[in-house]
Design a protein around this nucleic acid. Structure first.
Ligand SMILES: Nc1ccn([C@H]2C[C@H](O)[C@@H](COP(=O)(O)OP(=O)(O)OP(=O)(O)O)O2)c(=O)n1
Ligand SMILES: [Mg+2]
Length: 463
DNA sequence: GCGGATCAC
DNA sequence: TATGGTGATCCGC
């Protein structure tokens, strides 16, 4: 079939600071690859091998409402990002579906979704065939969970600082007149939006076309989505300022996880709440007006979740003694690492929606999910995930990145193209870019991987 | 070790 | 007028 998009490569960091090792320029593959394991978890879970059951009800388009709900699940998933409380999801879903329901992208999403449904059915069947004894809560399991909580009894004070609508906020500094209009950063793809636009359902990772339709239709034509192009130089500058301010509060453990997110681990601190409040004021002043939100807790993961609770321009302390209570009330989707698919598996197979249910059905979780995933979920259920496993630091200040980067890659998307000569040229361009990056960083590779995205959005990888 | 899936930002 | 880019982990094979 006609292919369309290309990407490249995936090497390994050896020893920065020396020897670019100028071998391999481009596509002729060579070398090898690398992998490593840590504690945290995303990725797969069940045994998703062959179960070609095929009694799918196949609800062919009947009620329009129903279909739009499906589109909603595909496109906006958990609609509860900050600033999107209480919006009319039904209406948004209908518009999204009408405007994009036949696009190649949505059709791909539907195929993907059907695979997930198959996984759901497979797990349901496994559950059906199991006896309750297979997934009872063993003493060993509870000992393990208690062990996690004991170990957590050290006295860390984790703080997560997350900038509010970061790219957008940076742009708004020089465009204050857009403050109360629906606006976003990014053209074809929306990187983020302001809170006015979020009321219309416009959010990160949404196609610009859809965002424009949403605003236009939901405002009855009175409003227009304003799109400003991205300017990463600006965001990097602001990010650097933020990092410098925050470093004063925690010179030792401070880690920048992304341009807009910083993790601190200050010790037993008196008056953390006030200190963090001052930190945020300090950030705002130093950046010329950018606000941020913060979470304070015993672990980075809980602090991260807490940082979202009072967004924008707010903070939340989760006291160690109320950690369990906090976690139990949480929809599982709020747990970093639980995405759209994992949420669906938990919901439809286990009837688990919240942290409490996750804990109550811990035996079932252990039975159904693979070890790493189960451990991650169970740790999460007692508020102990993201503990020992440190987050890789983001390339703070200098252009340098962390010391043990596992891969480096470049990719570009373009409109469908089937001419091999042209495709090869694209491939060479991308290869050149990557090679420059590697030289600049003085890293050596071990494996080269080529990624191709077809016109129907299927993705292939070959090493 | 490879390729597909999932996830975060 | 039409859905991004970078880096990481987990799992089955
Ligand atoms: N799929 C995504 C998600 C985010 N970003 C970028 C744009 C955001 O501004 C920045 C930070 O991501 P956040 O999830 O923190 O979102 P915001 O900071 O924009 O909004 P919030 O106020 O909810 O934190 O990362 C992106 O490029 N692509
Ligand atoms: Mg943010």
């Amino acid at each position: 079939m006609s292919n369309s998009k290309i990407k490249i490569v995936n090497p390994y960091t050896k020893h920065k600071r020396k020897l670019p090792d100028g071998t391999e320029k481009e596509k002729p593959p060579s070398n090898k690859e690398i992998r490593r394991d840590i504690g945290n978890a995303t990725g797969n879970s069940d045994t998703n091998t062959n179960t070609n059951t095929n009694n799918f009800p196949k609800n062919t388009g009947s009620s329009n409402i129903n279909v739009s709900a499906q589109a909603a699940a595909l496109c906006i998933s958990a609609s509860d990002k900050a600033g999107m409380e209480g919006i009319d999801r039904e209406k948004i879903a209908t518009i999204i579906l009408k405007e994009s329901g036949n696009s190649a992208y949505i059709q791909q999403q539907r195929r993907r979704d059907e695979k997930v449904n198959e996984r759901v059915r497979h797990l349901q069947q496994r559950l059906q065939e199991a006896s309750p004894r297979d997934y009872r809560v063993t003493d060993e399991l509870d000992d393990t969970l208690r062990g996690y909580q004991q170990r957590q009894a050290n006295r860390a004070t984790c703080v997560v600082v997350d900038m509010d609508m970061f790219y957008m906020a940076c742009e708004l500094l020089s465009r204050p007149h857009l403050n109360d209009k629906p606006a976003c950063v990014g053209r074809e793809m929306i990187l983020t939006s302001n809170y006015v636009a979020r009321r219309y359902g416009v959010r990160s990772a949404m196609a610009g076309l859809i965002g424009r339709k949403l605003v236009e239709q939901l405002s009855d034509g009175r409003e227009k989505l304003i799109q400003v192009p991205s300017n990463f130089k600006l965001y990097k500058e602001k990010s650097k300022i933020v990092n410098e301010v925050i470093r004063e509060y925690d010179p030792h453990n401070m880690k920048a996880y992304s341009l807009d997110e910083v993790y601190l681990d200050i010790g037993p601190y008196l008056a953390v709440e006030e200190v963090v409040f001052r930190l945020r004021q300090h950030v705002k002043k130093a950046t010329g007006g950018l606000t941020c939100s913060a979470g304070i807790a015993r672990t980075h993961t809980i602090a991260k979740i807490a940082s979202d609770a009072n967004k924008p321009n707010g903070q939340l302390v989760v006291d160690p003694v109320s950690t369990l209570e906090f976690v139990r009330a949480l929809p599982v989707r709020k747990i970093p690492g639980v995405g759209r698919v994992t949420e669906k598996l938990l919901q439809q197979v286990c009837n688990i929606h919240t942290g409490l249910e996750l804990y109550e059905k811990r035996g079932l979780v252990q039975f159904l999910f693979q070890p790493a995933t189960a451990e991650f979920l169970l740790k999460s259920s007692v508020g102990c995930s993201g503990e020992g496993s440190s987050f890789a630091s983001f390339g703070t200040e200098q252009e340098e990145s962390s010391d043990h980067q596992k891969g480096i890659s470049r990719e570009r998307s373009f409109s469908p193209e089937s001419d091999w000569a042209l495709l090869n040229i694209k491939l060479e361009e991308i290869s050149r870019m990557l090679s420059e990056d590697m030289k600049r960083k003085s890293v050596m590779g071990h494996t080269v991987t080529v990624k191709v995205k077809l016109a129907n959005f299927d993705v292939l990888n070959r090493a």
